[in-house]
Nucleic acid binder design. Structure first.
Length: 730
DNA sequence: TGGGAGTGCTTTTTT
DNA sequence: AGCACTCCCA
């Protein structure tokens, strides 16, 4: 069969597996997406299921779109009816279809993370809770964490008073969301899960429908997502999970790699297939990746190989400083450009976003175009969120988050006092802010009534085609006028116009199919509006414009997952930075960092550069870092040092950088010699209480000089050199 | 109401 | 260092 042409034996086996549960361990660059899509296409083409019977789940919209695009190319069918999407997107779809059973208002709105945070802040304020003691962000994390484990407040075990209070706040937050008719991201999942577990008829309906459930990036699923999958699979369904435990880098946000083992055990998975042949990178790169990841325990086990040949050695550069590193990268890129390499095929990866600044500065000065991933996305921009808030108020005036956002933006004389009075009135009446407006009197009452009338006028336009509606809202709200008068508002105006375009293309691409209007209270709303608002919340939009340009790609190693480039620079390979100092204390943290290194290394097709700097500015202070242990985990034979390298003494981390000793460092002006004592990184010292340790880091000078010392079992300490009694040990 | 000064924080992030 | 956030004053 045509579909199966060109698959290797393992891929072929995975694609054509009989109707059983399966776990596919798909290494980096092993054709994972191809297997996933071909599997679906094959099941349909061989009449083992209809397009309506597929459920394919991904984490990102990008991955979902990619699958749909590939399927469209493979099959002569309309893929729009297929259930392929993100966990959140699919749950949204289910909840919209069964909003009554789920106990939600028909037009429920979705809170994104920042909406959720402001909702929590508002809650704490209304309950007079000290937000120093219960920081909103921390509470948000707590609530989401519970939800992602499938726990409602009543199910959370709280032993201490602090947690008990947080559980109470969780409960109050839920009440607030219910009252306002809004749902956060985690709630989409949890609601959907509860809906299906509570409602047997519904559950059986979907269990019978989705005969094949396929999951992408299974290593990234959290507890609740796994429960959701199990529920939908039921006794008869068949789960096809694809993932790579070595690429699990999201434990910090609740991903549970253990789901892979659990899945294998609980479902007695008869087939675990390993895809180890790599179609992306040259051999040396893969050998390096394999060698690095071998240092982790408890892997499911995999070894990448290629028949592409060894390729070039891995180039390692040791810089004096972060500036020096950036300068070298610029030179190297200029040389590469001269050799005809496309800039867009070169990626600069770093551990944390703060590191991009120095690189950007150097690239900018050299006139090299670049594109930074991450950061603000389209639907997260304030002007867009403002416009959307008006649209949401049309759909649901009880959405207090949106109400608070725009009640006085652009300013219309409704100050903090008025809003507070309104909040009191709403609280007394147990109503939403909007509903409490008629009860207000005086000048504030008039301004508020005017605002209500404005929303009313907007609502009368709700039947208009979506792009027109958006246009009118931008005008009527005064947003357009406001930004016109703002001297820096030109970009924002352009973005608002772009929102109208986004509405147009949304209708063209995924306009609601034949569902007609939705009757909201007081008039007909276009179903497109509701779908568009959900779309805006669930898909934050492309990171930035300018995709077409031939620009260098700058991003964190996390954002690089799933991407590939001909040439990759992994920068800032320094102890403390990468592996990050917060993660080295526990084994699990270190292993996750190592997986991140594995991900970073396997992004490269042809050429991989690794670099580290001896000195780096961080949080306004100069830090002296040792080369990352990850560099040393690569077999020497695969590596070509671009800078002189003297044999390091004292084991993996006791070594002193060969190019810079602090006595003669040309650029380390404020040499960290403490009061002439001459401590240096890598030096072994003895402390009366902590015993022997190695100096990891030095900072400050003179009286303020401090040293970070790894005392092994006694832990890592920062000691003031003028105070601590240290003696040199040998 | 808006801006300027002072304060505090700082890993990674999708939905 | 750089940014977000708060507070206070004109």
């Amino acid at each position: 069969m045509n579909l199966l042409n060109g698959l290797n034996p393992e891929q072929l086996a995975a694609v054509t597996l009989p109707r059983q549960h399966a776990l596919i361990l798909a290494g980096a660059g092993s054709g994972k997406t191809r297997v996933l899509t071909t599997r679906i296409a094959w099941l349909i083409a061989t009449n083992q299921m209809t397009p309506q019977q597929v459920l394919a789940v991904t984490f990102t919209n990008k991955a979902a779109k990619e699958m749909l695009a590939r399927l469209t190319a493979m099959l002569p069918i309309n893929v729009r009816g297929m259930w392929i999407g993100t966990f959140h997107g699919l749950c949204n779809r289910l909840l919209r279809a069964h909003y009554r059973d789920a106990g939600l208002p028909q037009l429920f709105q979705i809170l994104d993370s920042s909406d959720q945070l402001s909702a929590i802040k508002r809650l704490l304020k209304s309950l007079n809770v000290d937000d120093e003691k219960y920081p909103p962000r921390e509470l948000q994390h707590f609530i989401n964490g519970q939800k992602e484990q499938g726990l409602r407040p009543s199910a959370v075990e709280a032993w201490d008073g602090y947690t008990q209070k947080r559980v109470q706040l969780y409960e109050a937050y839920e009440a607030q969301c219910n009252k306002e008719g809004v749902v956060d991201f985690a709630e989409l999942l949890l609601r959907c899960y509860e809906l299906l577990s509570r409602n047997e008829a519904l559950r059986r309906h979907y269990q019978e429908r989705f005969r094949h459930i396929l999951v992408d990036e299974f290593q990234d699923t959290n507890i609740l997502q796994y429960k959701w999958l199990k529920l939908l699979a039921g006794a008869e369904g068949c789960l096809f999970c694809v993932g790579d435990d070595d690429q699990s880098i999201y434990a910090f946000r609740g991903a549970e790699v253990g789901n892979m083992r659990d899945f294998e055990r609980e479902f007695r998975v008869p087939n675990v297939i390993r895809l180890e042949q790599n179609y992306r990178s040259h051999g040396n790169i893969l050998d390096a990746a394999n060698a690095i990841i071998k240092n982790n325990d408890n892997r499911l086990g995999k070894n990448l190989w290629t028949d592409a040949g060894a390729g070039e050695p891995i180039r390692v550069f040791e810089a004096y400083s972060d500036l020096d590193e950036a300068r070298w990268i610029v030179e190297e890129i200029q040389a590469l450009a001269r050799d005809g390499h496309a800039r867009s095929e070169i990626a600069l990866l770093y551990r944390s976003n703060a590191q991009s600044r120095v690189l950007e500065h150097a690239l900018f000065s050299a006139g090299l175009p670049y594109r930074v991933y991450g950061g603000l996305r389209f639907f997260e921009r304030q002007e867009i969120k403002h416009a959307l808030a008006y649209l949401r108020l049309i759909a649901n005036p009880d959405d207090d988050t949106s109400f608070s956002r725009v009640v006085n933006f652009p300013t219309r004389g409704i100050g903090a006092r008025s809003v507070e009075a309104l909040q009191d009135a709403a609280k007394a009446a147990g109503s939403s802010l909007f509903a409490a407006i008629p009860a207000m009197s005086g000048k504030a009452g008039t301004s508020l009534a005017n605002f209500a009338a404005l929303i009313g006028r907007m609502k009368e336009m709700a039947h208009l085609p979506l792009p027109e509606l958006v246009d009118h809202i931008v005008e009527l709200s005064g947003l357009r006028e406001h930004y016109k008068n703002d001297k820096e508002g030109q970009d924002r105006l352009a973005n608002l116009d772009e929102l109208i375009n986004a509405a147009t293309s949304f209708i063209a691409e995924e306009g609601v199919i034949g569902e007609g209007g939705v009757i909201g209270e007081g008039g007909e709303l276009s179903a497109d509006l509701i779908a568009f608002l959900a779309h805006a919340a669930l898909e934050a939009g492309e990171h930035q414009a300018g995709e077409g340009d031939d620009a260098l790609q700058l991003m964190t190693m996390h954002s690089a997952k799933g991407l590939e480039f001909n040439i990759v620079f992994v920068t800032g390979l320094e102890e403390g930075l990468f592996p990050h100092e917060n993660s080295v204390m526990e084994l699990k943290g270190l292993e996750e960092e190592r997986r991140l290194m594995y991900v970073a290394v396997t992004r490269a097709r042809q050429r991989l550069y690794l670099s580290h700097a001896q000195t780096r500015m961080l949080h306004g202070q100069t830090r002296y870092n040792l080369p990352s242990r990850f560099i040393e985990e690569i077999p020497g034979g695969l590596v070509k040092w671009l800078t002189p390298r003297i044999a390091r003494h004292g084991g993996a981390h006791g070594g002193v950088s060969p190019r810079l000793t602090f006595a003669d460092a040309p650029r380390a002006a404020s040499s960290p010699r403490a009061g002439g004592a001459g401590y240096r990184i890598g030096q072994t010292v003895r402390h009366a209480k902590f015993g022997e340790g190695i100096i990891i880091n030095l900072e400050g000078g003179g009286e303020d000089a401090r040293a970070q010392i790894n005392f092994g079992s006694a832990g890592m300490k920062w000691l003031a050199l003028s105070v601590a009694k240290l003696e040199a040990a040998t």
